[in-house]
């Protein structure tokens, strides 16, 4: 028989035109269930009006990002055991720095627009997919394989980023990471977009993005690398004027 916990699920509620408040649901859970399972059960059995976004339930689609006890989490792979105790409270809120559609669902249109603007690749050759695998360690045989990029475009990094909170125009970690993976050498037209106040220079290295990224994209490190690319590109332009 699996272990049972009694917890209070405290859900942020906000319908059109309302100020947000919390509703509390007392539930019996298996601590090894995921936070998303608890939220879905509230909808299925307790309150049909709760709105939340979810799709794949295994960390590949990026739809179910929420703040759980004040930390950005992909709720489909975050176990209840990791976030609270038996008799404890699990507080779930929508991601920050995005407009709330309803309750836990947010409108991430700004993120997708910006990812399109930098041409962030959704699929790419396997050797280029991971930042910690530098070109010198690529297996040439892997060049033939294409895979989905690590970034699942879940928005956790935008929600956690203190700089994104201060400027709604900031491109944000996921977008700058997409530009970095594309490379300025290969895409020189991106220089103007990222070498700007709301581009790489807005980041003040809090590294919250990399701390919350559920998909090992390491946006902070990619932003630092992109700054290097910006300097290299500027420098080479100095000497290659038309």
């Amino acid at each position: 028989m699996s272990e049972k916990w009694n917890i209070t699920l405290k859900v942020s509620r906000q319908k059109e035109g309302e100020t947000p408040h919390f509703d509390e649901y007392k539930m019996e859970v298996d601590p090894d269930e995921y936070v998303l399972d608890a939220v879905e059960r509230v909808w299925a059995f307790m309150d049909r009006t709760v709105c939340f976004r979810h799709a794949c339930h295994h960390s590949t689609c990026g739809a179910c990002g929420m703040r759980v006890n004040n930390v950005e989490k992909l709720t489909c792979i975050t176990s209840i055991r990791d976030m609270c105790q038996d008799g404890g409270t699990l507080k779930v809120e929508p991601l920050r720095n995005f407009p709330v559609i309803s309750d836990l669902a947010v409108d991430m249109g700004s993120l997708y627009n910006r990812l399109e603007a930098v041409g962030a690749r959704s699929v790419l050759p396997v050797p280029e997919a991971e930042i910690e695998k530098p070109a010198s360690t690529w297996d040439p045989a892997d060049q033939q394989y294409i895979r989905l990029a690590d970034c699942i475009e879940c928005g956790l990094c935008i929600s956690a980023c203190p700089s994104a909170a201060t400027s709604s125009g900031y491109l944000g970690p996921a977008v700058l990471a997409g530009a970095q993976a594309n490379g300025l050498k290969r895409n020189p037209e991106l220089l103007q977009l990222v070498d700007a106040e709301d581009g790489v220079w807005r980041c003040h290295s809090a590294f919250e993005c990399s701390a919350v990224c559920p998909s090992l994209v390491d946006p902070a490190r990619r932003i630092m690398n992109l700054r290097t690319q910006v300097f290299t590109e500027r420098f080479s332009r100095l000497f290659h004027k038309a």
Partner: peptide
């Protein structure tokens, strides 16, 4: 009733 693909489709094996 939910968002795109919140039922069977989203959880497809792939």
């Amino acid at each position: 009733r939910g968002d795109i693909c919140n039922g069977t489709s989203g959880r497809t094996h792939g």
